[in-house]
Design a protein around this nucleic acid. Structure first.
Lengths: 192, 192, 192, 192
DNA sequence: GGTTAACCGAGACGGTACGTCTAGTCTTGCG
DNA sequence: CGCAAGACTAGACGTACCGTCTCGGTTAACC
């Protein structure tokens, strides 16, 4: 007895998320009004609440929707791969409104369901890093014998730390320095 | 023309900040209601707004008020000092409600004044780390030649990263591993 | 071109009306939600709207459905008959939730179709009174020469007045007093 | 400790009630939207809810506000007085939207506080009738020896009965007939 | 010692948003 | 067709919060 009743309008989800993203960019999280989202999406407020039980959940979905996993295929040069990955993550964080990242963290700290959702998002984004780090370690490129997970934390963690805590900029140079710190200087770095 | 009129009640500031801290811990930034702060402090809302022109400014003041710098004097053994420091920071973060940290970050991301205030707070807490790292580097304990600031980020950043992003626990072992990763294994570690 | 398509389920009408009556008793007219009626009746909302085009019309039908005329055969003694009738009406009103009566009046005041339906209901219930009053008047039992309809109003009206307006109780004594006031005291009353 | 805080704006109450009356006349009870009342009165919705906790209570207040007790001084002729009073009540009921009367009854049947309020309203309006009836009875004008309260019910009750139940019109003639039925025919009536 | 200036408390007020509820309509697929 | 299931529009309801404003009443400093 599946598929009874009127099926959900497939367009709704997209329209709402799009409207929400636009509003979010324009007025920030606090300024994101459900009424306006509804109107902008050309949809009744009830329809939004049927899918997402609160503003917070809508924003979570919105973020997930933003996920555009660029599949990453590792090359031969782990150092180059790692630098590219960390730089990409930094770039992405930079282009995302900081409030969003912070609000997600705050919402996650309060609601375990959101927490899970948000963590899944980040996990997906950082997975490739773990793989490349493990590979680099097998190749003997890493200085210390520490669990790969810790190294990942030391590559990615500082990005969030700067973004959320110190407010310093996430430049490509910074990303490269992080990699250098973990892998040691490359030959070209040494020469310079 | 100084000192005319009724002087401000000296106790008010303290009472309000205390009440605000309590509310912030309980309900987070969004849930921090000025009405409740006023009631809890036994003070009129007007009195609060006379001192701080908005909720945001109140939180700024509140954060500054939180600063309770435990003075740290470095010893001979930089590795031991560093481990102690990172462990202490981790312990402090663990004992602080995660929502508080996240909400501060969120508030900072929204309001530059809060941002500055929050950063000053963290900077005070992390200053000692920078000093010890620099000393360790001078002593030749650090593997790579990277700016001390970056090393600090890689020691402290992962703590916030785990707390706010991945949700993994901040154990003393983790703190020691972070130090090991930066300084390389200690002699005792190597022996084991 | 008769009997095309699936025939209407004969049970539906009864189930819906019954459910609607129950809801009406519990929650009153305003609180009568079509969704709840549908669910309680085990019927789709669409099915209800196919038969009755609005909440108002459903209530109309519902009222008609409530009609359960207890046939009354007059005896020799008009005074006794009248007393019995008025007492019976009072008892029935007492056992009916006051909200129901009031809501019916309110709905009637709003919608002429409901109005007609409700009036038919009351008329059926009060018809016997008119007959007996007319008979009593012919027998010379009534003090004044007033149209029977007015006397009926003065016998039945006070019941609704007390119920809806003053909130005073409808006791059998009250019913008898009403009859006494219209017919004059009976011989036994006079003796006492 | 009187008169603390900002005093209530004296105009608000009047403006809101006026706006509410206008809305009520235009769109009926169900169509009376608090948002529109607020806008029309040039007042925030919160301000309305601070004074009246619900739509129902606002309407009650509205009715009470409508109270314009025409003080009645009885003359020598009780029959004339009574006729005038009953006619006045009938006229007033006729000029009031029926929905209002019915809705008040319905609201009263649900909420005891409203009930009390409404009854007070009616009681004030009907008080004079009781007095005049009692006087008429002392003067020997009443046919039967029944409690004055019952006679009042039989004079006023039929008006509400016709209005809410049978829907028949409340003409001055009807009012006079009611009085006649209770007092017996006047001399002039007999002559005619 | 009266005037004046600034404070304090209480709380009303305008405004904005949230999340809930309902009436009625519309869209499927099954019988 | 009828029916069940349930999505959809439109819009009211009552609550919460923010920041402003208006009072009556204090508490000093100054004339």
């Amino acid at each position: 007895m599946v598929g009874r009743g009127r099926p959900r309008d497939a367009e709704v989800e997209g329209k709402v998320l799009e409207a929400a993203v636009a509003e979010l960019r324009q007025r920030g999280y606090e300024g994101l009004a459900m009424d306006r989202v509804a109107e902008r999406a050309g949809v009744a407020k009830t329809t939004i609440y049927r899918r997402w039980s609160s503003k917070a959940e809508l924003v979570v979905a919105l973020i997930t929707h933003l996920r555009d996993d660029v599949p990453f295929e590792p090359g031969d040069d782990s150092r180059r791969d790692l630098t590219a990955l960390v730089t990409a993550i930094a770039a992405r964080l930079t282009s995302t409104p900081t409030t969003l990242v912070a609000d997600l963290a705050a919402a996650a700290a309060r609601d375990p369901r959101i927490s899970e959702s948000v963590r899944t998002l980040w996990a997906a984004r950082h997975r490739a890093v773990t793989e490349v780090v493990a590979k680099a370690q097998q190749d003997g490129l890493v200085l210390t014998h520490v669990a790969p997970a810790v190294l990942v934390d030391q590559l990615v963690g500082p990005l969030y730390y700067r973004l959320l805590v110190t407010g310093e900029p996430l430049t490509p140079e910074y990303a490269r320095t992080l990699v250098t710190s973990v892998l040691g200087p490359s030959r070209s770095d040494q020469e310079s």
